[in-house]
């Protein structure tokens, strides 16, 4: 699904964010990427999303060389990747329903299809009863659920979660991670970048540790510390 071979990323500022990364994540896999701030987690996500291009090495995502994806193909490539963020990135002036519908509308899904899909997606994340609430009226956990519903709207092959529990209390964090795990069980490859020791230890999945732009540890069924 994701294949880094000898990937280096040097920003124009001269900052060397990733150094000779070799890494492979299989289709359907669940992996945590952990490491302190500035270790390269965000850069890794940016490269996978084709927000940036690697300055060295090769990166394949979903079978495509990231450099071969033309500017005009990028949106279609991104539709196969769902993404959630620490700050949820919901539109404040839209309800839960409208936020999910927005993602579908932007990709020219037919209105009839949208009316059918949005309730299904909201029920997957357990928020059908909050369809008409605005982000400000929802708890952090509920907002992250809406973001998850939106992220899986295009039935992505890959789900990237960038600090998904960063703004949530421990119980809610666990709920969100259970939801992400459930999505993984339905066949979507999942990559979670996090600082959250508790959830990493609780899920016992593959753990990739980045430090100063290098992979320093890569353990199947790992823990945060060891």
């Amino acid at each position: 699904m994701i294949n880094f071979s000898n990937v280096t990323m040097v920003y124009r500022s001269g900052c060397e964010a990733l150094k000779n990364i070799d890494l492979s994540i299989a289709r359907g896999e669940f992996a945590f990427v952990i490491g302190p701030s500035g270790s390269g987690k965000s850069t890794m996500i940016k490269l996978i999303m084709k927000e940036e291009e690697p300055t060295g090495g090769e990166l394949f995502v979903n079978g495509q060389d990231i450099r071969d994806i033309h500017r005009y193909e990028t949106p279609y490539f991104r539709r196969k990747i769902g993404v959630v963020f620490q700050d949820f990135k919901l539109l404040k002036n839209k309800t839960a329903y409208q936020n999910v519908a927005f993602a579908l509308r932007m990709t020219n899904t037919k209105p009839r299809q949208i009316r059918k899909m949005v309730p299904q997606l909201l029920s997957v994340v357990g928020l059908l009863d909050k369809s008409n609430e605005y982000p400000a009226e929802m708890s952090g956990g509920e907002q992250q659920r809406v973001a998850l519903a939106r992220a899986i709207a295009h039935n992505p092959d890959l789900l990237i979660a960038d600090e998904p529990t960063g703004n949530l209390d421990p119980d809610t964090s666990l709920e969100i991670m259970n939801l992400i795990y459930k999505i993984n069980q339905m066949g979507t490859t999942v990559l979670v970048a996090t600082h959250d020791k508790t959830i990493v230890d609780a899920f016992r999945q593959r753990v990739i540790v980045l430090h100063d732009g290098r992979v320093v540890r890569d353990v199947p069924e790992g823990r945060y510390g060891v």
């Binding site: 005009y72 949106p75 539709r79 927005f102 993602a103 932007m106 990709t107």
Partner: peptide, 16 residues
């Protein structure tokens, strides 16, 4: 600007 960022990562085309 938030909306533009969201549009980008949900795969809206440049034209859209």
């Amino acid at each position: 600007s938030d909306e533009v960022i969201i549009m980008k990562f949900i795969g809206a085309t440049e034209a859209r």
